Amino acid sequence: MSRFDLRPAHIDGLVNAGLQFGIIGVFDDLTPVGQMLLQQHRPHREVDQEDSKPPDYVATVTDRALHPIAALCLLECYEYQTSGTIDWHTSDAHDWTRRLRETVLTRLPAEAKATVRHGTNYVPAYRLLDAYTETPWGITELDQIPEIGDGVIEVPVVRKGLRAQILTGPIHCPNKGLSSHVRHVTILGVGDERALPAFARISEPSDAAPGVYLLFQYGRYVARPADAPPGKWFMASGAHLHTSDSRWRELIGHSLPIPLHDRTEP
């Protein structure tokens, strides 16, 4: 990602976050803090730091309640764009942003701070939430920062399950069901309560391995799509599920394949 100079509005967002989360006092002047942040971001390299004048900056105050996760996005953008400057790690700006981050993180639920897998990387869960992804990377206006709204920070539950292979034979009639276009599924729950033991929560469902539930009916387990609308009827397509993973036996009580009911008819 290329580096660029942040606009004064981005500095405004940081100092307003500092005011909102108590890093700056209610009666303090925001402008000196913003000047400090801006001076570290755009250092005067031609002269000694002691002789350089404060940047031409006057803080703009907003009465909007900024979303704490949006504030983290502003912080991480500022640090990314500023971390290459001289003496960054010993600077007042580095210490100030660290204190702001620590304070903001105390306002988040544990689920938002947890590390989760995203693609091939592991990231804090809050980076995947709307308040983070909808905040521009380098704002140009204060109005671009999402507000906290009702104050509730909802963290989507990342469901995991046990991956299984779809087996098909000469008699296979899926009628556009799962087994017509994928070769793996992810078992997300078992039984009427759709619960899953912790030992089987291994992989996240995906387009190539969509979620299914295992239901015990007529003396045996059958698998059905997890995203099916309530009341939709499924029948056997001739496909079965199986995996050589030893957790399969622990999950269903035997090591045999089970039928996949993924066929529907109008």
Rank of each mutant, 00 (worst) to 15 (best):
H242K: 09
R201Y: 04
D150L: 07
A59F: 07
L14F: 01
T60V: 14
H44Q: 12
L241E: 10
A195G: 11
L142T: 12
K53I: 05
R183M: 11
S255N: 15
T133A: 10
M1G: 15
D29P: 02
G253I: 08
A17N: 08
I202G: 02
L260W: 06
R64F: 09
L105N: 11
E76W: 11
P197R: 14
R101I: 01
P170C: 00
P259Q: 07
H10Q: 10
H89W: 13
E141Q: 14
A71Y: 05
L215M: 09
P259G: 08
M235G: 14
E76T: 09
S180F: 11
V61A: 14
L38P: 07
L256E: 15
I187H: 03
R101D: 04
A200S: 13
I139Q: 01
R183L: 05
G161H: 09
L251R: 11
L66T: 05
D56Q: 10
L38Q: 14
G34K: 06
E50P: 03
P230I: 04
P146F: 02
E250P: 01
A236F: 01
F234L: 11
K113M: 08
E102Y: 10
P32G: 05
N175W: 12
S91T: 00
I145A: 04
D48Q: 07
D150M: 12
T133I: 02
V33I: 14
D5V: 02
R249T: 10
S179Y: 13
I145R: 02
T85I: 08
N121F: 01
Q144D: 10
H240T: 13
S52M: 12
H67I: 00
A131C: 07
T264V: 14
V185N: 05
F27G: 04
V158M: 09
H184R: 15
E46W: 04
F199W: 10
A200N: 03
K176H: 15
R194E: 15
L66C: 05
Q40T: 01
L260N: 04
I148Y: 09
L241S: 13
I69S: 01
A131F: 06
